[in-house]
Amino acid sequence: MDVETRAQSFETALRRAGVRITRQRAALLRVLAAAEDHPDANQLHTRATEAGAGVSLATVYRTLTALEAQGVIVKLEFEGESARFEPADGLHHDHMIDVETGEVTEFMSERIERLQAEIAAELGFEIVRHRLELYVRRRK
């Protein structure tokens, strides 16, 4: 999904939630829609400020909370890190988090997906949803 379409979907979700779309909030939505990483609230605040939006950190938090409640973004809470966010419109994927740098790498493995389903079935379950986080360190 392109940045403008994603920003528009965020705006639509906020309007559904009864949130007023101010100039600052619209700029924040564009910054969030353009993010190719997994930014936290402070990073989004900094980026929005650098883009010329005089948005407060409190507005960033309120906006993220409303977007999460509407199901258009996902809040990621990795160990020892502040909460990060990503759009909920992508395909299922898992995350590797570098414990030294905090860098997050998305990955998808059909082998892992099959194995998880097999294990759940062997134990008499089916997977409804899951999240896999691998905490990694680059080999020296």
Rank of each mutant, 00 (worst) to 15 (best):
A26W: 01
F125A: 13
S56A: 12
R47Q: 15
I112G: 09
R25H: 05
L123Y: 11
L29D: 00
A69C: 02
G90I: 03
L14H: 01
V136A: 15
E11G: 11
Q8N: 14
V31S: 02
R6V: 03
R23V: 00
I119L: 11
E86M: 13
S109Y: 02
A51H: 07
L44P: 06
Y135I: 01
S109N: 09
E79H: 07
S56H: 07
R138W: 03
L67N: 06
G71K: 09
G80E: 10
A53H: 05
R16L: 09
L57P: 01
R6G: 00
R16C: 04
Q8M: 07
H38S: 02
V72E: 00
N42V: 07
V136E: 07
T12H: 10
D94Q: 11
Y135Q: 05
R23C: 02
R23H: 11
G71A: 08
L44I: 01
D98T: 08
I119V: 15
Q116T: 05
M108S: 12
G52W: 10
T49N: 04
A41N: 07
E103R: 09
G54F: 06
I73N: 00
A69E: 15
E36V: 05
L29Q: 00
A7Y: 01
L64F: 13
T46R: 04
A33M: 08
R6I: 06
L28G: 11
E126W: 05
L44Y: 09
R6D: 01
V19I: 13
T5A: 14
G71Q: 04
L115N: 11
E36W: 11
I119E: 08
E100A: 08
H95C: 01
I97K: 09
E118G: 08
L115I: 14
G102H: 08
R20K: 08
Q70P: 02
G102K: 05
F107D: 08
R47W: 10
A69S: 11
R25A: 02
L32C: 10
L29P: 01
A83M: 01
L64H: 04
H45G: 06
T63D: 12
H38L: 14
G52E: 06
